[in-house]
Structure formats: structure tokens, C-alpha cells
């Protein structure tokens, strides 16, 4: 029966470093003025909405946001969702992101010089975060060669092809969202809500995972765990699913 999972025969030890389950408000309190914050999600899908809403109430300032996008702020339909609530409150000093086409307020703040916005190709952003969490000094990518993205960056030739040297990204705090956790913080993501979440879990000093369901240690098949518990510091039970 070598194809089933064999737990140790010699002792009954369980990896049981349980992670505190805190409220969304408590999670938001751990993000301080001036922190850099990674926020998981792709146009609201897979974003930690409970923590985002709690953070909006705290009105924390001068944050640096690292996120794929800044969610939706549409003046015409008056739809303002997810991270856009924080953009509206002007909580960010700087935003590092790949796409702001769905957020007219981020564009306005950028054009007015109110908020610094750094646009990064999405694959480069993902890899920068991965590199940050994987202990790399950076990576070489062909993406951005011959465009404004290459401005001020080192170009390195490998096998007669040119690559940009891109540097790793880390943050003070990552707030991420998963479908399920066990009490030690092992995470399982669902569908495309995975996106940047497992990468950000590896790249921040403090990692807070908002999850829909918390089960006992050992209940999740180890083959199906996407993010190891060692990356996760706190769990928040999601209260807010819609945005």
C-alpha cells in the first residue's frame, strides 16, 4: 500500500503549532501606518474582503500596496469594490500593480500626482513576489524589453538574447484569502481565487490568511495542501464573501 499516505509508525506526533484565529478587525490592527502590504486577489476574486473592509474602518495611512489590481471603481455605475474602497480613502502612498483599468480613482490619483503608481507587467509582478519569498536576488525576464518598463533597468545578455534584471519584492504584511485552512494554517485555495495568494504567503514578514472554513489538523489530505502552514501566522474566519 505504498501509494497511500503513511503517517509515522513510531510515535503519534502531529504538527500542531496552532495559529491564532483572530477577527478581521484584529488583523487590520496589525497593519501599521507606513507598512508595505501585499493583498491577494484578481479583480476581487480571491481577495480577503473581510480584512479589507476592516482596514477601511481603521483608515491606516501611507501604506504601500502590492496587488495585481485595485479592484473596481466605476464612476458611471457607482460600483466601488474591494481594494478600491481603500484607494478612495487615500490610504496608499504608493501602489505597485499591473492593471488599474477598472479603477478610475487610482488613475485619477496617479494623473493628479496624489498617489505614486508603479505599473508592472503581471508576470513580472508575480515572479518578483515569488523571488522575494524564494530567497532569490532577482530574475531575468524578456518581458518589457523595448518598452518603458525597461527604463533604468539593467539589461543582461544570455545566449544572445536580452533580458531585464527584475528585483524581488517583499512586504511587511500579506493579507491573503483561501478556501480552507486547518488550525495549523495549511491552506487550500479554490479555482482562480488562488492567483497571487500562495506567492504572497511566502514573501511577507507577517502573513494573515482569511479563510472560509477552518478544520482540524490532519483533516486535509497533505497532497491537496497548496500552502504549508509554516508560511501563515494568523487565521481570520471570513465574514464577508461578496463585495
Amino acid at each position: 500500500m505504498y501509494f497511500v499516505i503513511i503517517h509515522s509508525q513510531y510515535d503519534n506526533k502531529v504538527i500542531m503549532v496552532l495559529k491564532p484565529i483572530i477577527s478581521a478587525s484584529d488583523a487590520a490592527d496589525r497593519i501599521k501606518d507606513g507598512n508595505s502590504v501585499m493583498v491577494g486577489g484578481f479583480l476581487n476574486c480571491g481577495s480577503p474582503h473581510s480584512i479589507i473592509l476592516a482596514l477601511k474602518e481603521k483608515n491606516t495611512k501611507n501604506l504601500t500596496l502590492i496587488s495585481n489590481d485595485t479592484a473596481i471603481y466605476n464612476l458611471k455605475t457607482r460600483v466601488i469594490t474591494g481594494l478600491a474602497l481603500l484607494v478612495k480613502n487615500k490610504m496608499f502612498r504608493k501602489i505597485i500593480t499591473s492593471h488599474i483599468g477598472t479603477n478610475q480613482e487610482t488613475q485619477r490619483q496617479m494623473n493628479a500626482g496624489e498617489t505614486e503608481v508603479e505599473l508592472v507587467p503581471q508576470g513580472t509582478l508575480a515572479e518578483q513576489i515569488r523571488a522575494g519569498g524564494a530567497g532569490l536576488g532577482g530574475f531575468l525576464t524578456p518581458t518589457g524589453i523595448g518598452t518603458e518598463v525597461a527604463n533604468g533597468k539593467q539589461i543582461i545578455f544570455v545566449n544572445h538574447h536580452s533580458f531585464l534584471l527584475e528585483l524581488p519584492l517583499k512586504a511587511d504584511v500579506a493579507i491573503i484569502k483561501a478556501r480552507k485552512a486547518d488550525k495549523s494554517g495549511n491552506l487550500v485555495f479554490n479555482g482562480t481565487a488562488r492567483n497571487f495568494n500562495p506567492l504572497m504567503a511566502t514573501a511577507a514578514e507577517l502573513v494573515i490568511a482569511e479563510v472560509e472554513e477552518i478544520v482540524e489538523v490532519g483533516e486535509i489530505d497533505p497532497n491537496e495542501i497548496h500552502t504549508s502552514s509554516i508560511f501563515v501566522d494568523f487565521l481570520v474566519k471570513a465574514e464577508q464573501f461578496d463585495y
Binding site: S98, G101, T102, N111, P121, Q122, V149
Partner: peptide, 23 residues
Amino acid sequence: NLANYKVPGKMVPGMGGAMDLTI
């Protein structure tokens, strides 16, 4: 050459995944 992510000063949606996709 393709331009589709920015009209300086006017409309700046960002490149999203387009730069990686074209590469």
C-alpha cells in the same frame, strides 16, 4: 510593435498580462 496600455495623461489602464503574452 503594439501599443495598447497607455495614452499618457489620459487613459492609463496598465499592461496587465499583455507584455508577457506578446513576449
